[in-house]
Amino acid sequence: MRLKPKIIWIDGVGCNGCSHSFFNYPEISSFFENFELLYHPLLDSDEFNVQNCDILIIEGALKSNFSRLGKDLNSLISELFLKAKKIIALGTCAVYGGIFGKGLVFDKNEKGKFYKCRDRVINIPGCPSHPEWIMYVLNMIKNDKKIALDEFNRPVEIFSYTSHMGCTRNEYFEWKIDAQDFGSKEGCLFYYQGCQGPFTHSSCNKILWNEVNSKPRAGTPCFGCTEVSFPKKDLFKTETFMGIPANIPLGVSKRAYLTISGIAKSLTNERLTKKLIECENEDKQKDN
């Protein structure tokens, strides 16, 4: 692609969270050096014009009777689709519809308004999308590299991982030790607290958030925000079928999962049944 690809960035129906997430990219100045931003919903740019661009980034969902930049949102996006070489559907709203409306290529599991144009679209889901995922896709486009995509048009280099990979609670998962409740370092959140890590395509525990953390590391379950089902109902509860998690880790048969779980559960790992750090009250320590 050209030396400095031209980008138009449009906000559909959403919260601008993907823009704010992108703003956290630590080396953001390289974005401005390598790309020309013709329009952005938050950053200073020239007046908006429907014009040719190399990359059209759409953040937020489609919705009828929704006004944007003085036009109907859906027709504005259609006009811009004709003018763009590549399109990035940014965030779960633009990819599947999310909370607020319809996605570009997909409307939940159905074909979306722009399904026919899917060859030009790269989907980067996430609520929000991770800044490094966005920069990766932009750099691949700029360098004319082919981006391998999965069945949801998501880049394989990001979404072939599960958010479970790299989770600091993995040992508890191995030995089937659940978190007793919220607010503890110990235990896996997959059994009761609703964690969707083992079946969510995302690299949140490999490429950490804000370079330091992830939700499960901070004791919050993965809500599966990169998937079409986001946000499912009862997000803090694990859906079970006859006492067994209804959704099991990707790639394994239910029978195989039950067998290995049964064995792991029957063999106790003493170390992991205790608190990692016994916290003695400071006053008590003084008394002693």
Binding site: H20, F182, W209, N210, V212, N213, T220
Partner: peptide, 26 residues
């Protein structure tokens, strides 16, 4: 600033570490 928030909350924006009764992190 987002990084400081994330060290406690898991990520920023859009975490859910504040829950009725306290916080999820330890």
């Amino acid at each position: 600033i987002s990084k400081i928030i994330a060290l406690i909350s898991g990520q920023f924006p859009h975490n859910s570490y504040i829950i009725p009764g306290g916080v999820t992190c330890d």
